[in-house]
Design a protein around this nucleic acid. Sequence first.
DNA 1: ATTAATTTTTAGATTAATCTAAAAATTTAA
DNA 2: TTAAATTTTTAGATTAATCTAAAAATTAAT
Lengths: 223, 223
Amino acid sequence: MGNSLSLTEENYIKAIFQIGTTPESNVSTNALADSLQTKPATVSDMIKKLSHKKLIFYEKYKGVALSASGSKEALKIIRKHRLWEVFLVNHLNFKWDQVHEIAEQLEHIKSSELVNRLDDFLGNPTIDPHGDPIPDAKGRVQLGPSKLLSEMTSHEKGIIVGVKNEDPLLLQHLDKINIRLGLQIEVTEVNDFDQSMQVNLPDLGIIFLSEKITSQILIAKNS
Amino acid sequence: MGNSLSLTEENYIKAIFQIGTTPESNVSTNALADSLQTKPATVSDMIKKLSHKKLIFYEKYKGVALSASGSKEALKIIRKHRLWEVFLVNHLNFKWDQVHEIAEQLEHIKSSELVNRLDDFLGNPTIDPHGDPIPDAKGRVQLGPSKLLSEMTSHEKGIIVGVKNEDPLLLQHLDKINIRLGLQIEVTEVNDFDQSMQVNLPDLGIIFLSEKITSQILIAKNS
DNA sequence: ATTAATTTTTAGATTAATCTAAAAATTTAA
DNA sequence: TTAAATTTTTAGATTAATCTAAAAATTAAT
Ligand SMILES: [Mn+2]
Ligand SMILES: [Mn+2]
Ligand SMILES: [Mn+2]
Ligand SMILES: [Mn+2]
């Protein structure tokens, strides 16, 4: 392995990993350009380079998918990102809406010794502050099955285990209405017209949630 | 301040700070090229850029010195570097010879909130694992007066407060012969021919040190 | 099945950071 | 105080990452 990825290459690999639903599903040039806030022409150039390095599979006009080594790299970056987020929240008292941007920088620090010691220092956490699973040193992830709150029906119960994205405005709003990971939640009513919901939460009682919110909250698939 | 320094610019600013003995003393193009492991031609280009950004004073063929804003930036980077070193040693159990390289990366993470929270988390340390002073949030350093062990004479006593450089081989050697910060040391003999010394250390007793070593060890100037 | 719209790629430039080789200025030595 | 040595700067290229504009391929719509 005479390779060390540049910061840009790492960001491409991570984006391909996160956009691709399954490891095989191809990611389009435009989707990457959107995600990386760059232009399709730039992406075209870069994917040629990554393909040449055998990190992705690429056929012209057909999009890209990560190779085995590409996936391995992606998981390493994601592991670092999420471990640093745990550090920032658990030890530096950041709020969950403040850590993503800093972790975007810290995920590029190169030292496997550092990552593994950080992992131990944190107590080998399995999820990050947003409920996302943390890959272990070998890149393995243990992801419990979950569904969106918006997919639940009246009288269903479950436990909040994650949020779908890390938009600070969403996270701050959830803070404001006292929704956090680990809470038991029960759907008391679903409004057919706009998919808004009334839910019952411990202590808080019944609150109203729009579909904008319920489609961002992950609930453990019980049993 | 519409400025954010690139990683490269930060490294130049830091190098100028560390090479320049006093804030006024001019740093030569070649000295910078050596320190940054690059070529003089490259340095010439970059110092023009930094001068244009008013981070340094520069006159052709006369070398460079940091401006007030340049110094401020340098101190911010050095603060981050040393705080991260403390974290790595005190919380992740790295040895003092393993942290410099990782800190070279971490010092470029941009978030003043992060640095200040890290500072608090670490208990607002005033020195790093090598005895170097840590600038506070306002860039102030409190540096106790010190001298080199090699400058001491027979029967002088003092306390080891730092090492002059962070070469892992030096640090590992000091570990091996059980020399560390905080030890009381007494010069028992100085050999005029090669400036080698015999010193007395608590528990260890009398050991022999070459000038290569004694010129790297800092002793507090007592009172 | 053509045509139109969209997506993707190529062509040609630009910027930051770097290099080598050569010219210019400064410093050191004879 | 000239000449030699050293240092520093300039000139001209290169590489990575980016852009705009235009061409080519694919996909969607008549
Ligand atoms: Mn994140
Ligand atoms: Mn996260
Ligand atoms: Mn260091
Ligand atoms: Mn240090």
